[in-house]
């Protein structure tokens, strides 16, 4: 037993020296990407796609994905901020949902505490009504909401998520009190879809991709998308093009831990930027049905700050944040 322990301690000491390799040139980076969600979800597939692209383009020697699910990503973020501080081989994938979750869960950490490397993708949300609905345009919907905000039943994903935020923005634009919105939250776009098709709701919000099939088959009528510009292959026009000053993009980005600076940070930025500009990455984005929404580190940094403020204001107006 004692012998065993001794051996174990020796092995541990030996291994300790091999851990945390110093970053030298970009091409032999050994990275770990934290996906603050379970295997199979949106952030997980973003992390694994990035892993695939970084290895394929030779921007990193090895990339490992670690899943830390929980509380809309705040558990993974807290762990990342706490344990990866200053580690130049650790990355985190996150998105707008994490901005909202940090605020509504009163989390002590948020995305302003990590180092943005690049914004990667941004998917549009879509506003739909059932095919038999008398509502034909976004203006009809606004009029319906204005007439009686309580009976205008919205369905979409979880409370405080991007779907809920967009529904609140539209309610506000209709001139109604967003705190009176009748938003029925489901666990995700799938369950909300059944409620839409069953005709139990006035309008619904979800990621465009999730409801694309029903929109194309005519079971749902898309009124607008939340992306600022028209998107090729999507018939519905942006809210902005229809006279509403609303844009909301379900973006995902990649972050480094706090305290990574200088050469280390530059190496990571370069590796990510080169990966994102590669053909391999573009192919993956296309195959997954994502929309490219790239922004480099500096721009992304300012974006995070403004997005956090904006989301906080909306969540406060619907009573989900203090």
């Amino acid at each position: 037993m004692r012998q065993f322990l001794k051996t174990a301690v020796c092995l541990a000491a030996l291994a300790g020296t091999a851990f945390y390799p110093g970053v030298s040139t970009a091409n032999d980076l050994e990275l770990t990407i934290t996906a603050p969600a379970g295997a199979g979800g949106g952030w997980d597939s973003a992390a694994r796609s990035l892993q695939e692209a970084m290895m394929a383009t030779g921007q990193a020697k090895s990339v490992q994905v670690v899943n830390v699910p929980g509380a809309g990503g705040t558990v993974g973020l807290a762990q990342f901020v706490g344990s990866a501080k200053g580690a130049a081989d650790q990355l985190l994938v996150a998105g707008i949902t994490l901005v909202g979750a940090s605020i509504s869960n009163n989390s002590p950490v948020d995305l302003t505490q990590v180092t943005p490397l690049a914004r990667l993708t941004g998917d549009p949300l879509v506003v739909v009504v059932p095919k038999d609905s008398p509502i034909q345009t976004i203006d009809d919907l606004l009029a319906t909401i204005k007439k009686d905000v309580a009976t205008a039943i919205w369905v979409g994903g979880s409370a405080g998520g991007a779907d809920h935020i967009l529904a609140a923005l539209i309610t506000k634009a209709a001139g109604a009190d967003p705190s009176k919105i009748n938003y029925v939250a489901y666990s995700g776009g799938g369950e909300a879809l059944a409620a839409m098709l069953g005709g139990q709701a006035t309008a619904g919000v979800s990621g465009y991709g999730e409801w694309e099939g029903q929109i194309k088959s005519g079971d749902l009528r898309a009124l607008a998308i939340s992306y600022p510009e028209p998107i090729e292959g999507i018939e519905a026009k942006p809210l902005k093009a229809q006279g509403l000053d609303i844009e909301l993009v379900n973006w995902r980005g990649i972050f480094a831990p706090p305290g990574v600076e200088g050469e280390d940070l530059d190496a990571l930025k370069a590796a990510v930027d080169k990966t994102v500009k590669s053909q391999q990455w573009k192919d993956i984005v296309k195959a997954r049905g994502w929309t490219d929404y790239y922004a480099p580190s500096d721009e992304f940094n300012g974006f995070i700050a403004s997005e956090t403020e904006r989301v906080r204001a909306i969540l406060t107006s619907i009573g989900l944040a203090q």
Partner: peptide, 13 residues
């Protein structure tokens, strides 16, 4: 299966 189980010093070998 590329599913990361918790690693200690020993596993990093």
């Amino acid at each position: 299966l590329s599913l990361a189980l918790p690693q200690g010093p020993f596993e990093r070998l």
